[in-house]
Each structure stands twice: as structure tokens, then as C-alpha cells.
Amino acid sequence: QYTGVIEEHHAVREGCGVFDVSHLGRFRVEGPATITALDSELCNDAAGLADGRAQYTMALTEEGGVVDDIIIWRRSAEAAWVMPNGVNHDRILARFAAGGHDVRVDDARPSTALFAVQGPSARDVLAQVLADVPNRFRCIDTTTRDGVEVAAAGTGYTGERGAELIVAADDAEGLWHELVDAGGRPCGLGARDTLRLEMGYPLWGQDLDETTTPLEAGLGRVVSWDHDFVGRQALSEQREKGPARRLVGFTTGSRRIARTGSALRAGDTSGVVTSGNFSPILGMGIGLGYLDGEPGEGALEVEIRGEWHPVEPAEPPFVELG
């Protein structure tokens, strides 16, 4: 963090924040089988995605568990950026490289930086720096006003307008200063986490992992059933039976926070909190967690410091943006 999580959080919700997220994964997939590779390894519909569009998707196990949740930027029928989480970068890259598809896989993380520019005034900041600014879930190749090449997409992890930018490592420091000089506020990963939780966005390793399926996480919308992909059979069977557990959201109604790993229950149905934090916008605790089955008739409760407290069920996003 730079000046503090809450201050940076408000900077993004009210203006524009700039995050250095170079720890995240990124690699290029290029070749005649690019779309085939994306559709085989990931569960959303890359073939139906138009050139110049970005898409949220997932890599699954054969059992339907989430190996990683991923953003792809489809540049053309023969070229795409694949953006895994940082901790899963090597694994997802290796999966594509070993997939037997007629593609080249180029690891771009060592040679590039990745910035996220987010907030209501992000487009104004970007317009001062870039020759072109991508619209929401669009991806483009552009340059800075000084001619530095930048790959950009209208994506992010905060719910706000803005873009993520890939730039050569040698040009990263200059681009960072340009974005800050144009009005972007440097922000750290602590604020990024509270911002994503206000939107109900899952975090891999907490809300998603290999024991969790997209259907259990309420993310069936990212599964395209009209093509074959790793995990499709198991996921199809779960869709017919119904998931055994479900992700729920809640607010505490106070500054009390239910942390990751806290017990969760509703009547005779139990579960666990997977994400919990303080919402600077709502001024109260918010969280996500899984219940093993349909909630019972009792109130939804969480255990905090050895005591059970009632919480209010809430359907994310917790915060409505303008």
C-alpha cells in the first residue's frame, strides 16, 4: 500500500487509481489453432468471441474444479493473450504448451509489466497518456503519446471503468509516471482486495480452488456447454444433480469482520467463510462463504472470535456503482 487501504479504496471509487499488478500471469498464444486451444483448455466460448474482445473464463480439472480463473484477450483468430493469476501462471502456461495444439506459447511475464488503471475518471487519465483507449471488455494494441507500444484491454478487478496495460519492462517506469502525472493515484494490493470483494468477485485460492466448481461458485455463466473442454463431463453431471454446496454473500451490519476460515451456518446447514473484510463504502463487514447445501430455516450466522453473530444475506455485488 502507498497511503493506506481505505484512502486508496476511496481514490479508486471516486477518481482513478493505478495498480502495479505485474505479479499476475500473462502469455501469448499464437498460431492457426489458437481458438481451438482456448476452447479445449478453458470452459467459456472463445470461438464465439469476436476479435478485439476480452472474456472471463476458467481452466478446470477433469472433475470440474477450478484450476484458475482467467481473462483472455482475443486479438485475432490466430493470436490471444492469456492472463492467469500470478500463482498459477507457470501451470496454465505449461498446460497450453503441452496441449498438443498447433500454437506457439510465449511467456511474456519476465519481459513485460502489467498496470491496472481503474476508477470513474480512469478513461480521462488514459486518454492523456494513450493514443487510443479500449472500451469495456475490448482489447487493442496502442501506443503512448511518445510512441511506446502498449497492449490494452478494458478489464480490471475493481468493478470500475478503466483498463489493464501490458508494456515492455524497459518502458514500464516511464509509463507509470505518465499515468500518475495524468491524475492516477498509486494504489496497492490491499485496496484491490477490498474493491474486488465489494463487487463479489472471487479470489482464487480462497473463493475458488480445485475443490470448487463454477456451478458451486454461482458462475455458471462462464461455462459454455456447446463445446468440449477439460472437466465438461463432470460439470455436466453436477448440473443435472445440482451442486452440493453454494456460495453465499453476507453483510455484518457493523464494523465486525468475519475472516477467511470463520465458521458459517444457517439452521442445520454449515459452511465456512472464504473471504471477509471491511467495506469502506458501506462502512460494515462483508463476506463470501460456502454452505453445504440449501440454507436451513435458521438465521445466517458467522462465528467471530468464538461467538456466533447473525449476519444479513446479501447478493453480490455489495456496492452498486454508477
Rank of each mutant, 00 (worst) to 15 (best):
A266T: 07
E312S: 09
E315R: 05
A314C: 06
P202Y: 05
P310L: 02
P310N: 03
G249I: 03
G306C: 01
M199G: 06
P202F: 09
I281F: 08
A217I: 05
A314L: 00
E312Q: 09
L195K: 11
T211L: 07
I286D: 03
Q238D: 07
T213K: 00
R239A: 14
L288D: 02
T211N: 11
G287T: 04
G289I: 00
G242N: 14
R245N: 07
G287L: 06
V311H: 00
R246F: 14
V248F: 03
R221F: 14
G306L: 05
L215Q: 07
D193M: 10
E294H: 01
D209T: 02
G205K: 03
E301A: 01
D226S: 12
K241R: 15
T212E: 06
A266H: 01
Y290L: 02
T274F: 10
E237Q: 13
L247T: 04
E294G: 00
S236P: 06
F278T: 12
T269N: 03
L208M: 07
A258V: 13
A217G: 10
G188W: 13
D228R: 12
F229H: 05
S254F: 12
P214H: 01
F250C: 08
A217L: 09
E216G: 11
V311K: 00
P316M: 02
G285E: 08
R239H: 13
L197C: 12
V222Q: 03
V223Q: 11
H227T: 11
G218P: 11
G253K: 10
L288N: 01
A258S: 15
R232W: 09
W225I: 07
W204C: 02
W308K: 06
M199R: 15
E307Q: 13
T213Y: 00
V222K: 06
L291I: 00
S236G: 14
L282S: 02
G220A: 11
G306H: 10
P243E: 09
S270F: 11
A217S: 08
G190H: 13
A299E: 14
I286S: 05
I257D: 08
S236D: 15
Y290P: 05
Q206I: 10
H227I: 11
P316E: 02
G267W: 01
P310E: 13
L288I: 05
T251E: 13
F278S: 09
L291Q: 02
E303S: 02
L195D: 12
C187L: 13
R265W: 06
I286P: 03
W204L: 09
V302H: 00
D207K: 06
G205Q: 00
A191T: 13
E297D: 14
P214W: 00
V223T: 06
V248T: 09
F229T: 07
P214C: 09
T251Y: 03
L215V: 08
D228N: 10
A299L: 08
P202T: 10
E303R: 04
G285C: 13
G190M: 14
G293W: 03
E294L: 04
R255A: 15
G249K: 03
I281D: 12
G293F: 04
T211H: 04
P313G: 03
D292E: 14
G285W: 08
L282T: 04
V222P: 00
H309T: 12
F278G: 11
R265K: 15
